[in-house]
Computed example of a mutant assay.
Amino acid sequence: MFPLSRKQAFARVVLRFLHLTLYALGLTSRRHSRPVQWLQFGCWLCWYTAIWALTVHRATRTEDCDLDCVLRYVLLVCETGSHAIIVTNTFLQQDDSDSLECSDPVVGVTVVGLLVPILGAQYLVCSNLDKFSERVISYYWKTLPSFLGLQFHIIAFIAQVMYVNLRVRLARRQLQALARELACSWPQSKLQAMYLDHQTARLVDLKRRYNELYHLYSRINERYGGSLLIIFIVFFAGFVCNAYWLFIDLRTTPSRLYPILQNLGFIVNVALQMSAACWHCQQSYNLGREIGCLISKLVKPLGSRRYNHLVSEFSLQTLHQRFVVTAKDFFSLNLHLLSSMFAAVVTYLVILIQFMFAERSANAYSG
């Protein structure tokens, strides 16, 4: 085993930090005793019970709740409720397979590139809390753990997909090397039984590796499918609401820079994370298609019957076992989903703006 380089050690430290943060937020399980796990789950349960009780108490005492107030209550329930569901699911699963031991520098740099905007936006908000209203500050502190937990969870998902994609690229390179070797001229030595058995053994190994990669994607779907469905719904709602608040701030008080930067920071972070998730999942699908196209180059008319039968089986395997990442089979994560979500954001943003003008017209008429 060779020692890790500096870049690999840096990637290992970044991913270890990500894993520990997920454990602190209750989004991953580690091999601790059952009482410790129960204690952690009980703390989160008490935290959310207190938040929801306080929210219901304030909502019943609030006489006039405008559209802005309603949106904040809806987002608070969505973010805290989704985080509570994922924490509960993680506690019930007791699965430690999500511990990422990858040391690839590309994965580490990608995780850092996704973490830095999150931490920068949180620092900007925390350093200027005195410039916000009491309602906004209360909403911020109540949703901060859930907001960070959902974002860190999807970053861990992106790291997992990138790690599996690296293994798929390695298998693709080995398949390309085998295809180039078979495309060369065929001297008589390559028609010997020993050489044909060697090529058959390599093909069997690649077929087995493809099956292992397919099961890795299946485990990702099983581990993150439900949480991805919840996170994308919450992120969509948050994206629409923050885009609405950004429009209001730019229209009414464009001189107030900090609320604009707060909403803009959330929009940029969510758009970056959803784009990265969809792009890497699209890469998984494309890599699987490329492997399927390469199999046609392995056909050897002068080969043995067993070899050609393996090539046919491998081709059928790539057709039925696609590298597709889904959210509990509700939708597949790809670039088409990303474009559809951004189009839907514009639609719901226009609806909220129409509600805003209708509310102001009603207030002006009643006044």
Rank of each mutant, 00 (worst) to 15 (best):
residue 106 V to G: 08
residue 113 G to A: 06
residue 86 I to M: 10
residue 330 F to D: 02
residue 355 F to Q: 05
residue 347 T to P: 07
residue 140 Y to Q: 04
residue 114 L to Q: 07
residue 194 M to T: 14
residue 194 M to F: 06
residue 66 D to G: 00
residue 359 E to G: 01
residue 181 E to A: 08
residue 84 A to R: 09
residue 213 L to K: 02
residue 54 L to Y: 09
residue 355 F to D: 00
residue 26 G to K: 00
residue 202 R to M: 06
residue 253 T to H: 13
residue 10 F to H: 12
residue 221 N to M: 04
residue 103 S to D: 15
residue 27 L to D: 05
residue 111 V to W: 02
residue 299 V to K: 12
residue 155 I to D: 00
residue 329 D to F: 11
residue 273 Q to D: 07
residue 65 C to F: 05
residue 6 R to M: 11
residue 56 V to F: 11
residue 241 C to R: 09
residue 269 N to W: 01
residue 128 N to W: 02
residue 22 L to W: 01
residue 113 G to M: 10
residue 212 E to V: 13
residue 305 R to K: 13
residue 24 A to M: 15
residue 110 T to H: 11
residue 38 W to Y: 14
residue 180 R to S: 12
residue 264 L to T: 10
residue 27 L to K: 04
residue 19 H to S: 15
residue 25 L to G: 07
residue 325 V to Q: 01
residue 70 V to Q: 14
residue 336 H to Y: 11
residue 73 Y to H: 13
residue 109 V to G: 04
residue 296 S to K: 11
residue 208 R to D: 11
residue 215 H to W: 10
residue 150 L to V: 04
residue 259 P to V: 01
residue 29 S to G: 04
residue 138 S to K: 08
residue 180 R to H: 09
residue 88 T to L: 15
residue 25 L to Y: 13
residue 281 C to F: 02
residue 352 L to K: 02
residue 268 V to W: 10
residue 343 A to W: 08
residue 114 L to C: 06
residue 41 F to Q: 13
residue 259 P to W: 03
residue 314 F to P: 00
residue 273 Q to Y: 06
residue 92 L to Q: 12
residue 280 H to S: 06
residue 179 A to Q: 09
residue 247 F to N: 09
residue 193 A to L: 14
residue 62 T to S: 14
residue 321 Q to H: 10
residue 26 G to W: 02
residue 268 V to I: 15
residue 78 C to T: 04
residue 40 Q to Y: 00
residue 305 R to E: 12
residue 257 L to I: 10
residue 4 L to T: 09
residue 70 V to L: 10
residue 257 L to V: 14
residue 298 L to Q: 06
residue 229 L to Q: 07
residue 199 Q to W: 03
residue 126 C to D: 13
residue 15 L to Y: 04
residue 165 N to R: 03
residue 165 N to E: 01
residue 256 R to G: 01
residue 117 P to F: 08
residue 181 E to C: 07
residue 265 G to P: 03
residue 339 S to T: 14
residue 307 Y to G: 02
residue 278 C to T: 14
residue 323 F to A: 11
residue 138 S to F: 07
residue 70 V to N: 05
residue 169 R to V: 11
residue 137 I to Y: 03
residue 237 A to H: 05
residue 73 Y to G: 07
residue 335 L to C: 10
residue 360 R to C: 08
residue 189 S to C: 07
residue 188 Q to M: 12
residue 268 V to G: 08
residue 4 L to V: 09
residue 95 D to L: 05
residue 122 Q to R: 14
residue 161 V to Y: 02
residue 110 T to N: 10
residue 159 A to W: 01
residue 46 C to N: 09
residue 332 S to C: 14
residue 7 K to L: 12
residue 176 Q to F: 08
residue 36 V to Q: 14
residue 93 Q to H: 12
